[in-house]
């Protein structure tokens, strides 16, 4: 406990110390917040990757993704080949007045067509304007930040590991061939 009144003095010291430190206030409209790259601000669409598999629309808990598409036949790539059919995206819209930012659509997309962007300033005065159509979703795509770097001691990503393994194998093969060639040359020289 200590001296009587030491608690009172301690209280005064706390407030005085806080006063000498920088305030925590975020001066938002004047200073933009520094958001982490995985911030759930808005969802961007990278259209070229979309195959209209409808997984996102089906998994969405509040059904806020609207997708329209039609099928097109593509002529065979090589003469004599088979005709292929392909899905073409007509409409892709997310209603952000319904969206609850769970991110399930982004998780389930097997082709990496949906991304989180930290942009958050898209308030509207009319709720219908919160339905973001394809072009707007594409624009959000340009605000998606680069994926954050891996942790210093992290495992390599699988694709890099696979590529490296192949490269190493090829290098070893080349080395072996070279060695065999050399040995042959030496034999010939001996002979």
């Amino acid at each position: 406990m200590g001296l009587p009144g030491s608690g009172l003095a301690k209280g005064l010291a706390v407030t005085l110390r806080t006063m000498t430190r920088r305030a925590h206030t975020a001066q938002y409209p004047d200073v933009q917040p520094e958001l982490p790259p995985r911030t759930r601000g808005v969802i961007g669409l990278f259209e070229e990757n979309c195959t209209v598999c409808m997984l996102c629309a089906r998994e969405c808990p509040d059904w806020c993704i609207y997708i329209d598409s039609h099928k097109e036949t593509v002529p065979p790539a090589a003469p004599g080949g088979r005709e292929r059919s392909r899905n073409v995206l007509d409409r892709f819209a997310i209603d952000f007045s319904l969206c609850m930012y769970c991110g399930i659509c982004i998780e389930v997309c097997p082709f990496d067509a949906l991304f989180w962007s930290p942009e958050f300033e898209y308030a509207e005065t009319d709720i219908q304007d919160l339905v973001h159509e394809r072009d707007k979703l594409r624009e959000w795509m340009w605000t998606v930040p680069e994926p954050p770097a891996l942790d210093p001691a992290a495992e390599e990503p699988k694709e890099v590991a696979a590529a490296r393994k192949t490269a190493e194998k090829l290098a070893a093969q080349a080395e072996q061939e070279k060695q065999e060639q050399q040995e042959q040359q030496e034999k010939e020289g001996d002979a």
Binding site: L16, R21, A23
Partner: peptide, 13 residues
């Protein structure tokens, strides 16, 4: 201002 800074705020700006 003083109260704001003692509470880690900025006060009127």
């Amino acid at each position: 201002k003083v109260m704001a800074h003692m509470q880690g705020r900025l006060g009127p700006m």
